[in-house]
Amino acid sequence: MSTAASHAATPAPSPEPDRRDTAQGRSAGRAWTRWILKRLGLAVLTLWVVSLIVFVATSALGDPVRAILGKDFAVSPERVAQIRAAMHLDESLPQRYWIWLSGLLRGDLGTSIANGVPVSELIGAKVANSAFLVLVVTLIMVPLSLGLAILAARHRGGPIDNAIQVVTLALAGVPEFVTGILLVSLLSTSVFHILPAVTVLPAGAMVWQRPLGLILPVATLVIAVVPYLARILRSTLVETMDSDYVELARLKGIPERLVLRRHALPNTLVPTVQVSALQLAWLVGGVVLVEYLFNFPGIGAALVDAVRNGDFPVVQALAMVIAAVYIVVNLVADALSILLTPRARTEMVA
């Protein structure tokens, strides 16, 4: 043992640079403020570009008046002129965009062409209904996926794992309205007549007052999002269970239960958040077909109606709502990911 034992006696004057970041409370707060401001700026910029695209797609491509009047377009020119004036259609495109955008910024979403009601009034309840639907689906999706992933990872290679893998793989690609139709025909028509096939609400009621009508839409969306999420989480979990630090934990004699809970699961939180956000963002669009199928009084069905009626103020408003939700969900997911990753969290402050 000739290697200079003298070095051990005193704490070694570390020749390696000490990578500790001097994280002070105040500078952490400042770093977070800077990060949030930067991301908010970026989000606003994105939303602005989104508004441009939405406006161009809805206003510039087609002729809304022709769409509204249909056959009347050719026979009543005075109606045409009247509507054109009401919708500022004689102004230039940039001016119309400005009128729309400034209204948007004031919270004025415009007036529905189909029935002359302010758009905000028209979609308010529907946004709440859809938000409730998505919320319920999310609350089921995350624990269910995580549970399936843990179950599969703990029995890796066994029959339980294989069964979960086969079922989730088969379901992962099936379109949501296909699943929905199959569920309807199974549970509310031919085979069993248990659940209502469509959501019928008395005027003014909200969806949560008729929970039975929620079951099929929720089930359809859950089946649409859970398989993919569960598969991703299972593979992350399996990868973590194969990592060096999990092996070390086992070699330290830590019981498997604790290995999973303390060593493996915390390191799968970030992928869980990220992929859940991805699925959540998908859900906001995915509700369209499902709501249409079940006549669910939400933004999806409203969007389809508005598109069919050429009610472009409603289309614009709903498109902006959906894009905004996507942007916010991503922002929150990124912030959570940083908070949950010690490395990202401490380095952001540095």
Binding site: D244, Y245, E247, A249, L251, K252, H263, P266, N267, P342
Partner: peptide
Amino acid sequence: VAYVPQDPSSALNPSIR
């Protein structure tokens, strides 16, 4: 009986103090 791992930078859990 205890074990010292090959590559401690990957053998220490990154999310535990």
